[in-house]
Design a protein around this nucleic acid. Sequence first.
DNA 1: TGATTGACCAACT
DNA 2: CAGTTGGCCAATC
Length: 114
Amino acid sequence: MDYSQKNKSFFELVYEVAKLIPRGRVTSYGAIAAYLGAKSSARMVGWAMNNSHRAARQIPAHRVVNRNGQLTGKAHFGHPDLMQNLLENEGILIENDTIVDFEKHFWDPATLER
DNA sequence: TGATTGACCAACT
DNA sequence: CAGTTGGCCAATC
């Protein structure tokens, strides 16, 4: 909101990184957290995504999966298959709720960020 | 206001 | 090898 934003919350940072994810690429909660400097806060990334629906901006949370490449948050997309559908729509193959060739589609925030 | 939880990860037992 | 625990930050109970 318009309230003084002296320091960006972890959530805001997560949102920004998530929005930077290129189409057809995916990243992991831990990668985002690590990029933010606190790999221990991977849980927060997921928590942020949970609140992402509140965010005024659209967060491509479907491009964020766990380090296994597994669609752990698919249940939070309104429909269990929505997340998979979105990813497949971007050319990512999903098998058994897990991204095929996750490494190939993996995008590290630090890669594009500077 | 203290305790619990959460779309995770890694280490320990 | 599988289950448990600790850790981080913020939100909910």
